[in-house]
Amino acid sequence: MSAELAEPASKIELPAHIGGGGEIPTFNITLRVRRYNPEVSEEPVWEDHQLTMYGTDRVLDALHKIKWEIDGSLSFRRSCAHGVCGSDAMRINGRNRLACKTLLKDLDTSKPITVEPIKGLPVEKDLIVDMEPFFQSFREVMPFLINKGHEPTKERLQSVEDRERFDDTTKCILCAACTSSCPVFWTDGQYFGPAAIVNAHRFIFDSRDDAGDMRLEILNDKEGVWRCRTTFNCSEACPRGIQVTQAIAEVKQAILARKI
């Protein structure tokens, strides 16, 4: 051992047959990325990259490899890279998923893997879309607790059953995979969209909240829950496994129960 060597990763010498990082299988993939740069061309183009990736790599790692080693101009959003922040929803092989939760080995690596920005929102550059219309709908359903009673001195207690009622819709990470998979949203973008309804559902069915009626009235709009055609694209797209279509149906029933 020479003195110049940096601190070794491990003091224990592993025999070769136990293995280490080198044992992870590698494979070659073609990543076909939809590139768009309005400063160069108004037309988006497909760009292919041949990459050698590991069996533990995700689509996000492939995008990082391109951005860090091949073409630094590739633009995409990602923050936590662990499926929680909801920044890197994109259309991978025609399906909305999080790039950080999609393992390359689970995709068909014999064909090019296509990566596109999510549909229905204005593309700004490459895989980055303008999320403002999406968040505007989210804000309009008032996704915060509104309680008309006196402010308690302790926390607001809730029974396990009452908490269970809206548990599924608390999982939303606002990645827009659902809203941008909805064909009704693709057409004109006026529809509130599954994500806004899911986040309204989270408060409508919260026993501590007093503004459920206001939210139901907002979603009784022409562009509200009644535009849902139950195509289930949103439920399939949700990276958190939220039963989105069911949540929308429950909001529909709540509006009906209130009106009739």
Binding site: D130, P133, Q136, D188, N220, D221, G224, W226, R227
Partner: peptide
């Protein structure tokens, strides 16, 4: 927000329901 995403303010009522 791009104009095509703006919802009209009118059209209340329960017709769609």
């Amino acid at each position: 927000i791009a104009p095509q995403y703006r919802r009209g303010t009118g059209s209340k009522g329960n017709f769609e329901m």
